[in-house]
C-alpha cells in the first residue's frame, strides 16, 4: 500500500494533537494549587562600641590618692556606642581593681564611686553633659537599665575614677583594662 503524506497537513495534525495533549496533561493536574507568601523583616543597625578616650590620671605621687572626674574632655574615659536610635540597651562595665606595671612587679589600687559615670544619649561632651542629656551620676557597676541609644544613633558613657598609690609604690606607668559591654535588650 502506498501511503502519501502531505507534510503541511501532517504538520497541522501534529500541532493539533500536541495542543490536545497539553490540554489533557493540564486537565490531569487540575485541582491542585499553590500560593506564595513572603516573610519580611527589617534588621536595625548593629551595635558598635569604641573607647574614644582613655581614663588618664595625671602624675601620681606615692601615698597621695588622685581622682579623675567624669567631666574632663581630655582625661575622662569616654565610650562611644552607635546603633539603632531609641533602642533599649544593656550596659555593663567591667572595672579593674588594680592597675599594674607592664612587668607585673607592682600594682596600684583603682576605685570607682557610685556616681562616677554619666550616660549621655544626646552626644554632648564630658564637660558640657547635664542631667537632661541622659543619666547623670550613675553607678558604673550598675548602669541605668533604661538606657537607650540616642535618637541620633549614638550614646556616650563617661567614666571617672580614683587611684590610691601606696607610700612605697614603685615608680612607673600603670595600666588596667576597662571594658564596656553593650547589647540590645529588645525594648
Amino acid at each position: 500500500m502506498n501511503i502519501r503524506f502531505n507534510p503541511a497537513k501532517v504538520g497541522r495534525v501534529s500541532s493539533l494533537l500536541t495542543v490536545i495533549l497539553v490540554l489533557l496533561v493540564a486537565t490531569s493536574a487540575f485541582g491542585q494549587d499553590a500560593a506564595n507568601g513572603t516573610a519580611t523583616a527589617t534588621v536595625q543597625t548593629a551595635l558598635a562600641v569604641t573607647a574614644t578616650n582613655q581614663l588618664i590620671f595625671p602624675t601620681v605621687f606615692q601615698g597621695v590618692a588622685t581622682t579623675m572626674g567624669k567631666t574632663n574632655n581630655d582625661s575622662t574615659a569616654e565610650f562611644t556606642i552607635t546603633g539603632q536610635g531609641s533602642a533599649g540597651i544593656n550596659l555593663i562595665l567591667s572595672l579593674p581593681e588594680y592597675l599594674a606595671l607592664a612587668d607585673g612587679s607592682d600594682r596600684m589600687t583603682i576605685s570607682f564611686s557610685a556616681t562616677d559615670a554619666n550616660v549621655d544619649s544626646t552626644v554632648t561632651t564630658p564637660a558640657t553633659f547635664a542631667g537632661s542629656n541622659g543619666w547623670i551620676d550613675q553607678n558604673p557597676r550598675n548602669l541605668p537599665a533604661a538606657a537607650v541609644i540616642g535618637s541620633a544613633g549614638q550614646t556616650n558613657v563617661y567614666l571617672g575614677g580614683k587611684v590610691t598609690p601606696s607610700t612605697y609604690q614603685t615608680a612607673g606607668t600603670y595600666t588596667g583594662d576597662i571594658i564596656l559591654s553593650v547589647a540590645y535588650n529588645g525594648t
Binding site: T38, A39, A41, T42, V43, Q44, A46, Y184, N185
Partner: peptide, 11 residues
C-alpha cells in the same frame, strides 16, 4: 504575609 517588623541584631 509573615511580617517580623523591625528586628534588632542579637534579639
Amino acid at each position: 504575609n509573615l511580617v517580623f517588623g523591625n528586628v534588632l541584631p542579637g534579639i
